[in-house]
Design a protein around this nucleic acid. Structure first.
Lengths: 194, 194
DNA sequence: ACCTGAACACCGTTCAAGT
DNA sequence: ACCTGAACACCGTTCAAGT
């Protein structure tokens, strides 16, 4: 009988962390406020002390997912891959970030990192290309991630059987490289990587 | 008192058409089976005679939205714009198609039209570029359309005020052109269009 | 062939009240 | 500062039964 032993007492951080863990378990479609509350041993209404709406909670999760993106002096392709992999790191991460990013006007760490990388490589139209690459990454990653989930859960509806997602890595690299544009030939020399 | 005058008798077609009209009025988030049923003067359960699930109904709507895409001998940029505009033609059209298209493995009319246009222009890696351009269009259109809706409904959260969506048309053209790749110079000569 | 009526197992959100 | 309890206005889906 210590002075306080009421077990369920949370803050913004613990709610968000629990929600993110639950997202990986059940997916975005089944991530309800009531389920999150249940996992925290709390009534659903308790969540509204920490977040004013579900949308605000989801936006917070999207920020956490994209917070990993580091603007090191890496190349455009490496930066693009790290953004994609940050989205892939959580179930339905791409869809979550896509559906939340319309409100973030150019202020995302992803877009800044891409713009810096483009500048390092001597690209033209840096800002516009950064936006284009970000839109490509979000569209591509959302489709690929949805397909991955559909594949693992059984029913396919389309044609060929086995390696449907095989060429998608090449599509990603081709897309990012094309959107980067002609390199000014004075920038970082291309290193072949098998 | 004609022999039949029971007013509510529908088929797949009339249900889908009503649902598509309702989508334009209320948006994807508020497009519920119960609301569609209400518009048809029918109980919600009646919809399940025509469609086995809401997901199947939404997939049908996505097909209708993209059915407009015509594989005429137009250029890649023109084809890409017509796909984008087909998505823009209905409220939340891009989001709907994006969330439904992961299951259509390369069988979409949009992808076929892009592949034909790329071939006409003498591009390399036709299939991969068609997929990349389609992913770019879907990501871009989804983000732009969400922003358009958010702008019209008031609250912005980001920086500058007025022409935030101004450069996005240029981003689209730059993106599609870059993804098309270097033209083989023997194909259709570029016509300047003001 | 197409629909009703009733039920089941859920949702997000608000708000007074508790501690 | 953080949570409960109860309510409000909704969801998608199933299924026996009607016509």
């Amino acid at each position: 009988m210590s002075p306080e032993h009421n077990p369920a007492r949370h803050d913004r951080e613990s709610v968000a962390r629990t929600a993110l863990a639950l997202l990986d378990e059940v997916g975005l479609a089944d991530l309800s406020m009531r389920r999150i509350a249940g996992r925290l041993d709390v009534q659903p209404s308790a969540l509204y002390w920490h977040f004013s709406s579900k949308q605000e909670l989801l936006a917070d999760l999207a920020d956490r997912i994209t917070a990993i993106i580091h603007g090191t002096g890496a190349g455009v392709l490496t930066t693009a891959r790290s953004i994609r992999d940050a989205l892939f790191a959580h179930r339905d991460g791409a869809e979550l970030v896509l559906s939340t990013y319309a409100l973030r006007l150019g202020a995302s760490p992803a877009q800044s990192a891409l713009a810096r990388a483009l500048e390092n490589e001597g690209a033209t139209d840096v800002e516009q290309r950064a936006v284009a690459i970000l839109h490509f990454i979000l569209g591509h990653a959302t489709l690929v991630q949805q397909r991955m989930h559909a594949d693992s859960h059984g029913a396919l509806l389309g044609g060929d059987e086995n390696d449907v997602t095989a060429g998608l890595d090449r599509v990603f690299d081709l897309g990012v490289t094309a959107l980067t544009g002609a390199i000014s030939a004075a920038a970082t020399p291309p290193r072949d990587r098998a």
